[in-house]
Structures are given as C-alpha cells and as structure tokens.
Design a protein around this nucleic acid. Structure first.
Lengths: 219, 219
DNA sequence: AGCCAATATCCTGTATCCAATCTTGAGGGG
DNA sequence: CCCCTCAAGATTGGATACAGGATATTGGCT
C-alpha cells in the first residue's frame, strides 16, 4: 500500500535535508554560493521553498546570508573553529557530569562495543567510519542527559563540525581512542567527575589538532 | 538630511524587528497565531518577506511552525522554562569564570552604578526598569568573555525570557539584588570562583521562582 | 594603467493563481 | 443525546511571471 505513496513532506523540508547533507558531506564546499534561481531550476521547483530551506540552514549556521548578496556555505576560520571546540568542551563536560549517573547497563555495553569497533577502524585506517562511530559514542553517553535544552545546543555545535572531519588524522584518532577508553572506564566506576574531566580534555585536544591542521591547509 | 531618507534595510528584516519587539514586549501573546495573509495585509506587503521574517523568528525560538498549520508565538511550559534557566546557570557560571580576570576598572564602576540604580528601582517598585538594568548588569560582566560562541548562546537564551518578566516579583528582585551585590564584591576581589558560584545559584533561584509562578498562573 | 559607464547577474519583493490540508460546524445515524 | 461523517471555508504550501535595485564585471575611453 506504500508502493504509490509519494514523499508527502513539504518540499522545502526535502530541499533542506538535501542541501544539509550535501554541505555536511562536503559536496558543497565552504564559501560556495547558493544561488536561489539556480537551485530552483536544478530542483525543478520555485524560489519560495528554496528560500525557506536556506533560512533553516542559516539557523543551523551552515550557511550565512548577506543582504543583497545572498547565501553562501559558511566557513570557520581557525579562531572560530577553536572557539566552537572550546564551548563544546564546556558543554560536553557538563553533559557527562549529568549523564553518568543515569547511564544504563545496555548503554555501557553499547559503548564497549563501539570502542572495539573503533579499534578495528584504526587498524583498517578507515577514518570515515571512525568519525561516524565517534559521534555515536558521544551520543550514547548523552542519552542520559536530563536537559533537552543542553542537548540541543550540543547537537547544534556537532553539526558544524563533520565538514571538518577531513582535517582529522590517524594520530589524533589514536589519542582520541585512549580518551574514549578512559571515559568508559570512569563511567563503569560511576566516577562522573573523572569522566567529565577526560571528556573536556579530549575535546580540547581535538580542537587544537584541528585548528593546527586548518592553519596548515590554509582556510 | 535624514528627512527624506527611507529605511533601506530589506523589508523582511524590518518585519523581523517589528514582530520580535512585539513578541518580547508581550504585545503578541504566547500561543497567538501569526497568519501570513493577515500580516501581509497589515504591513501592506507581500507574503514572501513575511515568511522570511517568520523563519528568522523561528530560528530564535520565538515562534514555532507546524507544517500546514503555520506559525504561532512559542510558549514555554514550566518544565521548559526551568530547563532554560538550568542551562543558563551553567553557561553563565562559566562565562563569569572566564570574564572576571578581564574585567576593567570602568566595568566595575559601571556595575556599582547599576547596583545603586537597581536599589532605587526597588524602592520605587519599578519592576520594568529593574528588568532592563538587570540585563545590563549581566551583559557588562560578560563583556570580558573571550568566547563569541558562548556569548551568542547566552544571548539567545536571554531573548527567550523577557516575555516572562511579568512573572517577576518584588521578593525575587530583592533576593537577586543580594546576589548582585555578592557578585560585585567577589569581582572586586578578583575571586572569579566565588563570583561564578553566586551567579549560578542566583540564576537557579530565579528559575525556580519563575517556574513556581508560572505553575500558579497556569500556562 | 586607471577610471567610468554599460551590462549582466542575482537578490528582493509584488501580484495572482491553484492545490493540499486543516478546522469547523451542520446534519444524519446509533 | 452523543458521536460520526462530510462538506465548506480558511490557510498554508507552492508556482509563475514580472519589476526594481544592488553588485560585480567588462569593456572602452582617457
């Protein structure tokens, strides 16, 4: 009965998802302009839903708009990237502090499993999959955070980041894996303070590594 | 020379500002629907810039949109209000921690002046002015925060709040004033840890008071 | 080479139209 | 008497066509 069902979601939402993924995957590069008429033609739709989608992306900080100039995919300078990681280090430290007391047995099992999978990825040098698993690791932990508001802010900051995953290195990934292991150990012992401190330093270190590479590659 | 100068800013931005102020001042009540055609007629413009403005407001969480139903002014339940204050307590605690070492002599003078003005307001029972001064007090402190990202998030949370200032009471204001004094003292001594702890409790207490009143008055 | 004007591009906004969807309310059946 | 259904009106979602301005580019003139 679903065979003939079309996608009934509003067009602007579909456009939003499409563009969002394209930006996050790097198919559309930072700095690239997003022309309304161009997009409208390419999607075969009118300008209205395009504008809606672009405004939504703007709210996510994935694109920026300049009056009378239009929209373009946002880019983060070294400083901004650093700042984002800094704020993440604060927020996620607090998130861990709040989450650890609520972490279930299953969650711990899932985390152990993820750490193993990430080990595998490290051996296979599969940075792409590693990035995905890493995100999963963090979000399993945060499932226990009782504040939707805090979680929303963290998610937002995370979204401004997969685009820069290409800046990741094996070296950083190995250091991160150590942190993951330490966090998992602390969680098992119920030591939320230690877990949060490790998380904070883990994110800070990642931020420094990214910013350094960003500088090298030249924004 | 300004006599003939029209407002050259994009129409949708002007609409955004107008609606934003109307919502913040409570001229448009939480829960009220914002009909596109209606607004378009009232402003004497077409629907496109209205939609743009509404999307911007949505990004600020001042309105919410439901597909095929449209936009309405957002409201915060007791729980959500509480959550917002909780996250504010974390963020502003950190902000104080970061800001205190950078606070200038002038800033301290400005804060002292603000505290005095707020004392005046308390005597005159002018809660409206008090709310404005209170915002100013916080933002003078945060001027020294080196993270634009953190500041942006805090500002965002603040904006979701003036609408509920009506829930404020003289009793709460007096308690807050004590906190302000304590924060100022700690700042003068350069004791950022103490200042941040007082700030955290100050916001938490305000949140509890608001949520309680919200429950009383019924959402 | 440097400056200025003409032009092309693209954003912004208007006006109008139609279809899909939600709300509402009236009327019929249990 | 209440509930259910169904039709009418209201409103959003989207398309189309067009006009006016801002910006950038280009090409020619000095």
């Amino acid at each position: 009965m679903e065979i003939f069902s079309l996608d009934r979601r509003p067009v602007h939402e579909q456009v939003y998802d499409l563009l969002r993924n394209a930006i996050l995957n790097g198919e559309i590069r930072p700095g690239e302009r997003l022309l309304q008429d161009d997009l409208a033609k390419r999607f075969g739709i009118s300008r209205m839903p395009i504008r809606d989608a672009l405004r939504l992306l703007e709210a996510d900080k994935l694109v920026v708009s300049v009056p009378n100039k239009g929209f373009m995919v946002s880019d983060f300078g070294e400083e901004e990237l650093n700042d984002t990681f800094f704020v993440r280090s604060i927020l996620e430290r607090e998130a861990v502090l709040l989450a650890v007391p609520n972490i279930t047995e299953e969650a711990v099992k899932a985390l152990e499993c993820l750490v193993q999978e990430m080990d595998q990825c490290l051996e296979e040098r599969d940075l792409g999959k590693l990035t995905r698993l890493n995100k999963e690791f963090h979000s399993v932990i945060y499932r226990g955070v009782p504040s939707q508001c805090l979680l929303g802010i963290i998610r937002n900051l995370w979204d401004n980041f997969p685009r820069y995953a290409m800046l990741s290195t094996l070296e950083l990934a190995e250091k991160s894996q150590e942190a993951h292991r330490a966090i998992l150990e602390a969680i098992k012992k119920g030591d939320s303070v230690k877990a949060s401190r490790v998380m904070e330093n883990h994110i800070l270190a990642a931020g420094k590594a990214y910013a350094a590479r960003k500088e090298l590659k030249g924004g």
